[in-house]
């Protein structure tokens, strides 16, 4: 309903006076402070089309390494779509087309020479709903290293599983039942299992698509703590609907609206001193 309320003045249907310039011509506002780490992923004029429908318009964004970047915005604004361009998961959707350039460490990830399978070994992803495989906890974590051939022996694989579960903060809870099904864990545990599965292949980037939206506050707190720890080793991009979560876990925030990147900068600045009126409206809960 809030979303509707917002769209009404912008929809230019009733001929009412729009309070702002049309969305299309608004340039992206970037705050003065530079990236926290060296740039890991750099997106240039990225647009995404689902059939005839354009979901993302010319998004350009620098994502620094060893930093948590939060993508915020109302539902349907394209933040998840943008997230999925970074590991080419959009390739799996027929009728989906991506234009523009996305570079990881200076290399175009959409180049013909880049194998999406290899890319996804470097860019892990955690989904909204915990989706462990219906296999044992051990098998879930061992799956990635196994298909990518990262462990040369059973002992090495055991070590990878143990380290990954420890890093995901799950080892203490599951060490005595590694061979019971992963689907038997609680929602929060499942999400940490999925994170362990993602980090077992030692990715460089972890994409998280609303990882806490299906969890209770305690499980959410645990995941947030975990994200903060993981930041030291990985470049993390998180899509979230919770302003508080974005403020708590991220160092940089990008605000998306109607398929466009509106504003990006250090999180404190976005939340305390946004340059754009729409950002202010969104983070203060006036729409979205």
């Amino acid at each position: 309903m809030k979303f509707k309320l917002f769209r009404a003045p912008d929809g230019s249907q009733g001929g009412g006076s729009a309070p702002e310039a049309p969305v299309i011509s608004t340039p992206v506002v970037t705050h003065g402070a530079g990236p926290v780490g060296p740039t890991k992923i750099s997106a240039r004029d990225v647009s995404v089309f689902y059939g005839d429908k354009q979901a993302l318009y010319d998004v350009s964004l620098e994502i620094p390494d060893k930093t948590v970047t939060a993508l915020i915005g109302p539902s349907g604004c394209g933040k998840s779509t943008f997230l999925r361009t970074m590991n080419r998961m959009n390739d799996t959707i027929s009728h989906c087309r991506v234009t523009g350039r996305i570079e990881m460490d200076g290399e175009d990830i959409n180049a013909k020479s880049v194998d999406p399978v290899l890319l996804r070994a470097r860019v892990g992803m955690v989904f909204q709903k915990p989706n462990p495989f219906p296999k044992t906890i051990y098998e879930n974590v061992a799956y990635g290293p196994r298909i990518h051939g990262l462990a040369s022996s059973k002992g090495e694989l055991d070590d990878i599983v143990q380290i990954s579960l420890k890093r995901a903060g799950l080892w203490e809870e599951v060490s005595d039942r590694l061979h019971s099904p992963g689907t038997g864990l609680s929602g929060g545990q499942q999400q940490r299992l999925v994170i362990a599965r993602a980090i077992a292949v030692e990715p460089e980037v972890i994409l998280m698509d609303e990882p806490c939206s299906a969890l209770d506050p305690i499980a959410t707190a645990k995941i947030e703590e975990l994200i903060d720890e993981l930041r030291e080793r990985y470049c993390i991009v998180i899509v979230t609907h919770s302003m508080a979560q974005a403020a708590r876990v991220s160092q940089r925030t990008a605000f998306f609206h109607l398929g466009r990147l509106v504003e990006t900068g250090p999180t404190e600045e976005i939340f305390t001193n946004p340059r754009e009126r729409r950002t202010l409206d969104y983070i203060t809960g006036r729409f979205g």
Binding site: N87, M89, T92, V117, L118, L119, R120, A121, G124, M125, F127, K129, N131, P132, F133, P134, Y143, G144, I147, H148, V194, R197, A198, V201
Partner: peptide, 23 residues
């Protein structure tokens, strides 16, 4: 079969064939 399982496998870097035959 829930699409989330396919997505999970693909996001782990499984190929299409691996996703189909392993999951």
């Amino acid at each position: 079969v829930p699409p989330s399982i396919r997505e999970a496998a693909l996001a782990m870097g499984a190929s299409k064939t691996q996703t189909v035959f392993q999951h």
